[in-house]
Amino acid sequence: MVVLTILLALLSAFLSVKIWLLRRSSKEIAEALSECLKTDTNSIITVSSRDKQVRRLVTELNKELKLLREEHHRFVQGDMELKNAVTNISHDLRTPLTAICGYLDMLKSEDKSPEAERYLEIIGGRAESMKQLTEELFRYSVIMTSESEPKQEQVIVNDVLEESIAGYYSILSEKKISPEIDITYKKVIRILDRSALARVFSNLINNAVKYSDGDLSVRLSDDGTTVFSNHASQLTSVQVDKLFDRFYTVEAARNSTGLGLSIARTLIEKMGGTISASLENGVLSIVIRL
């Protein structure tokens, strides 16, 4: 009986040590994996344990980590190639479009039949649309390829929002949209890039012009949360989930590259904020938190 008790005690002690070693190994693996995922190096997971199963697990994790890094590098390379392609294409399109618009302006002063006048007006409208799309592509490529940090300055968000709304007054009036504006009287001051914030607000108002059923609500609360909302019966929840994806457009958005909201998200995230979209009872809401 005494021998059995001693054996059970030894077994218990052995298992306790074994469990402690496994816990230590799992902690080492978790910390090493976290560090490897955070850094863009070829470091691997190492563990002090001599246990065969633990070392086999580490070997398999290192294999998967290597594959993950290869996929990540391919993605980064492909993403950079795409950005460079967009930059080159938008730049190459700007020169001939400028020439086309110039010759169209010259033709307007020439004598022509009413039919030719109508055709010329159609061509001019299409050329102007192409020019706007090209400029949007060029702005996107500049923003995405820029490695510089956003300019940091003290900005009164209220003023930037009011100026952005005022800048779209004529377009909103043309679309018969009377925006409901609720901007807090309290000054919302943040340290960020004023021009980038103005671009974000402009893109969101422009988005409302494209998707709105004829209304727009803009609210800025004391805590710096800005909400743009409008009825958008043509949108679905699936489409809303993709609104911030680059080049994504819906059928209702003509003359669009699908880059406006993608640019907005990139700029907001660079300034340390968040932006999200939701659809509830047919109302699209885009929320910015600075």
Rank of each mutant, 00 (worst) to 15 (best):
G282D: 00
D79V: 08
F14H: 03
E70C: 01
V188W: 08
A232V: 04
K175V: 01
L284Q: 01
V227W: 09
T184C: 10
K242G: 00
R246V: 03
Q239F: 00
S129C: 11
S43D: 14
K242Y: 09
Y185S: 15
N230A: 11
K242F: 05
L197A: 00
H73D: 02
D193F: 03
D111P: 03
G78Q: 05
N158L: 09
A232K: 01
T249Y: 04
Q239W: 05
I177S: 03
D92L: 13
T87G: 03
A32Y: 11
E269S: 10
I45D: 09
N281V: 05
S237Q: 12
S26M: 14
E28M: 09
H91R: 10
R56E: 05
G167A: 15
Q132A: 08
D245V: 08
E70K: 07
Y185N: 15
L67R: 09
E174D: 12
E31W: 06
G282P: 00
S278G: 12
R50K: 01
S43P: 03
I288E: 02
I286Y: 06
R94V: 01
Q132K: 15
E180N: 09
K18Q: 15
L172R: 10
S173R: 15
E180Q: 12
L279M: 02
V142S: 02
S285G: 06
K175N: 15
E31M: 12
V188D: 10
E115S: 07
C101F: 09
S148N: 11
V3Q: 12
Y211H: 10
G273M: 07
A166P: 00
S164I: 12
Q154I: 10
E128R: 12
I263Y: 00
S109G: 09
V218W: 05
G102M: 12
A32I: 03
V58K: 07
E121C: 10
S217V: 12
A166L: 13
V17T: 12
I123H: 06
I6E: 14
Q234E: 08
A85Y: 00
I177Q: 09
L204F: 07
L220Y: 08
S146W: 04
K176L: 04
L290Y: 07
T5N: 14
S195Q: 04
R23Q: 13
A252W: 04
K108M: 15
A196C: 05
R55S: 09
S170T: 04
S141V: 01
L216M: 03
G167V: 13
P114D: 04
S278R: 14
T98P: 02
E280D: 08
V218M: 06
D223E: 12
C36W: 05
Y119S: 14
L216P: 01
A116H: 10
S164R: 14
T134Q: 06
S233I: 03
N203H: 02
T41R: 10
R55A: 05
I123W: 10
A264T: 06
D213I: 06
K176P: 11
